[in-house]
């Protein structure tokens, strides 16, 4: 049984993992629309986000149907979306 990831709004770019996955694992995307499988590109802990479609550098990333940040690099479908490739529009750490 693959790990599921919840898509909160149909227009979102990311889904949230309900359990940990390893690179190459199939992830079941649920919550909105037709359930489908995506292959995880990275190891990711539970609660983290994966891209459900390719995201381009500088593209605004949607979760909850709202902008949560901007991509700082191209992200492939199934890729881990986190602080290494997504910056808040509101607040940016100096480091």
């Amino acid at each position: 049984m693959p790990v599921t990831a919840i898509l909160i709004r149909a227009q979102d770019h990311v889904a949230t993992l309900t359990g940990p996955v390893a690179a190459g694992d199939a992830v079941l995307i649920t919550g909105q629309g037709k359930t489908r499988e995506i292959i995880a590109r990275n190891d990711m802990p539970a609660g983290h986000k994966l891209a459900i479609r390719p995201i381009q550098e500088h593209e605004q990333i949607l979760k909850y149907g709202e902008v949560i940040g901007e991509a700082t690099a191209d992200i492939a479908e199934g890729g881990h979306v986190h602080t290494h490739n997504c910056w808040g529009v509101k607040a940016r750490r100096h480091s």
């Binding site: 949230t16 802990p45 609660g47 986190h82 529009v89 509101k90 607040a91």
Partner: peptide, 15 residues
Amino acid sequence: NIEGGLTTIEEKSLG
């Protein structure tokens, strides 16, 4: 929060 998977303040506040 970051360890738990939250990436930005926007994401945390929206939740």
